[in-house]
Design a protein around this nucleic acid. Structure first.
Lengths: 221, 221
DNA sequence: CATAAATTCAAACTATTGTTTGAATCGGTT
DNA sequence: AACCGATTCAAACAATAGTTTGAATTTATG
């Protein structure tokens, strides 16, 4: 059966990608764990690149509509939401992924972290292209929560938030191990997400810096 | 002359590493840009791994003592500093790198971002091993600024802050391009650093979440 | 049951990687 | 000028990568 092989490849790929990253996971490692032939990856997916895309798609297809719905519901009840409320509308959709697939939330957020740091902007472009409308709705909701910030400032703050989230999740395994060893804390992905929320909310909602843009024309990076 | 070749390799390596990451930069690309023979990398540095280390060392040797001194000075003047003051003590040392090497600040922070996300914890271990005392002094200063937070909470907040910083810097080139295209903003690394400060300060200083650790024994990540 | 399409398989292919080798060359010392 | 250690160089090496191939096998269809 074709569907089985394809699914086995996706399952093996997502866990290996999440653990070691895209670049450091070979097709041979994937097909070996999936117990399928090496060539079946190219047969079913065309290339490694497309395999990576489909691995992410499986989650995004579920996550993004859920976020949309959650946002819609929030704005209906609170036309002027708080930053915390807006970001908290991501939590339930993220945890929903645990029901779709065992350990789905952890796997997805790590994939997201890998995708953002390893794919030199491909993932960002892919998401903005396929889910631009949802993204815009989220940005608008943030703007409702912090109307005093300019659109540009919100752009920066949101990418700071993405960075916080994505980096933390990509390192979540290591961080959890340290927390256990040094502070006797048993933490899971859900715990980390909840721990992140106050940080991100406060950060995004912080008053803008007085010095907006020092040396504006120098040393463009 | 030996010193010249070694320096040329380091210069070429750091810019290529910052731009494309460690894994995606081949020794051939480095030696080609440095106009030296391929084998000279292994002759002068032993291996690619050690080359990466020396590239980072060149900056850390300058940055860390400067941070130490800045912190010492801050605490002498303000025995109970604010979060913003503690994190702002990183700014001058970071900008100092621009004087050591052209575009040094941007290159270093990108290297840092790459190192944190690509080296599966090697960089973190390296820094804590070689600069553990300085790091502890910084953590202590943060604790002075937010005494209401537990040591464990500060641990998490600091790693959130590292994530914010490191991810933003690793993506700084792409973000700057978007900011220019969408908001007509000319931003440089110094500008981004200043923009980051309110976000990080507010995040680290945020009140702790009410729900500390839901489902403590489940699904350890 | 037979035919055709879909899938699996072992093997080879091409490209790239970090590293090593041994001879050639350079630079300073006696 | 002759020597010697340090350095450079072109070339090859071994390992790994993604991809392709063509035959073998399975699956579905008439």
């Amino acid at each position: 059966m074709s569907a089985e092989t394809k699914t086995e490849i996706l399952n093996a790929a997502e866990s290996l990608f999440a653990e070691h990253g895209f670049g450091d996971t070979s097709l041979r490692a994937i097909t070996s764990q999936a117990k399928v032939n090496l060539a079946s990856v190219n047969y079913h997916f065309g290339s490694k690149k497309q395999l990576i895309q489909e691995v992410l798609q499986r989650y995004l297809r579920i996550l993004m509509p859920a976020v949309d719905q959650q946002l819609k519901q929030l704005l209906a009840q609170h036309p002027q939401p708080s930053v915390d409320q807006v970001f908290s509308s991501l939590v339930q959709p993220l945890l929903l992924l645990n029901q779709v697939r065992p350990n789905g939330t952890a796997i997805f957020v790590r994939l997201l972290g890998r995708g953002y740091s390893e794919s030199q902007g491909h993932l960002r472009k892919y998401i903005t292209h396929h889910y631009g409308a949802s993204l815009q709705r989220f940005v608008n909701a943030v703007h409702l929560a912090v109307p005093q910030l300019s659109a540009a400032e919100i752009f920066w703050r949101l990418h700071f938030a993405i960075g916080t989230f994505v980096f933390t999740m990509a390192s979540s395994k290591a961080l959890s191990e340290i927390a256990l060893a040094d502070y006797q804390q048993q933490v899971n992905v859900e715990g980390i997400i909840h721990r992140l929320m106050p940080y991100i909310s406060a950060g995004v909602g912080a008053p803008a810096s007085a010095v907006q843009n020092p040396n504006p024309m120098l040393d463009i990076a």
